[in-house]
Design a protein around this nucleic acid. Sequence first.
DNA 1: CGTGTGACTCAGT
DNA 2: GACTGAGCCACAC
Length: 123
Amino acid sequence: MSPGHTARRGPGRQAGAFRARVLAAVRRIPAGRVATYGDVAAVAGQPRAARAVGNIMRDCRTHDVPCHRVVAAGGRLGGFGGQPGLKRALLEAEGILVRSSRIRNFEDCRWTPRLRTRTRRAT
DNA sequence: CGTGTGACTCAGT
DNA sequence: GACTGAGCCACAC
């Protein structure tokens, strides 16, 4: 293979390395805890790729990933492929208190490996 | 290699 | 609480 050849499309390549890390991170989330898209992205190596994580989650239905444990920032539920109510039910089933569209004990059940260095943008 | 897309996030109104 | 604008990112086409 040509080492200088940066082909990034087609079968048989590591396309989706980031995606693999994201899926792995989500799988590491224990029951009863939740993580935000930004947190998952940070664990995957891209603290700014929250948006990309969302896209990956959209395909989680084809993976064995507890995507329902991935929520939006601020404790909001975020989305869930056509069944947001299901996501809420799953979270409540794990002991997470959900209010309307928000997690009450969000900061309580928020799961983070150790990363907290979210280079936040200038305000 | 350029463009469009979206289960994101933050700040302001 | 809801809506808008701007920023950031990986992926499909």
